[in-house]
């Protein structure tokens, strides 16, 4: 078990280091659609994910913004550290829980982005960062 945990840690470091480079899978906005038409313009807001700036459509869920920006890993699981990146997109499964402004276990698929939000990958069960959690508006 210990060696497995160490392997996982190594795996994690490599994943997080190479995340952006390895993620050119063509994730994108669907700007035109034969049935739904053109994507209506909405104001853009900026937030951060693990410190990097991400541009989002105002009001969309954090997960949608991150996936559109090419991020694939949103959290790691508590026991073996394996990666998850969203699955049900309705707030049922635990695969997109992130840390938002210091508050862990926030479902990224159901939480709207807001300007200046600091979103972080949740590792395991997450840990409320003292001082930061109090800023969460809800």
């Amino acid at each position: 078990m210990i060696s497995r945990e160490r392997d996982n840690r190594r795996l994690w470091e490599s994943i997080l280091d190479n995340r952006r480079e390895s993620d050119d899978v063509g994730a994108n906005r669907i700007t035109t659609h034969p049935i739904l038409g053109d994507l209506p313009p909405v104001p853009l807001v900026e937030f951060t994910f693990d410190g990097a700036a991400v541009s989002a459509r105002d009001g969309e869920p954090i997960a949608a913004a991150l996936i559109a920006a090419g991020y694939r890993v949103l959290r790691t699981m508590p026991r073996f550290g394996d990666a998850r990146g969203g699955y049900c997109m309705v707030g049922r499964c635990p695969d997109c829980l992130v840390v938002v402004d210091g508050l862990p276990n926030v479902p990224a698929c159901r939480t709207p982005v807001s300007a200046g939000q600091a979103v972080r990958t949740q590792h395991g069960l997450g840990e409320a960062v003292s001082g930061e959690a109090g800023r969460h508006s809800t």
């Binding site: 994108n28 994507l39 996936i67 694939r72 990146g85 049900c88 997109m89 309705v90």
Partner: peptide, 26 residues
């Protein structure tokens, strides 16, 4: 089946049709 990039059918429909995000090409 748990790897990032595996979605439930309706989860993917929500991403594509509601949020207008295509999580990949293939």
């Amino acid at each position: 089946a748990t790897y990032p990039g595996v979605f439930s059918a309706r989860g993917l429909q929500i991403l594509l049709n509601l949020h207008r995000v295509r999580p990949g090409r293939r």
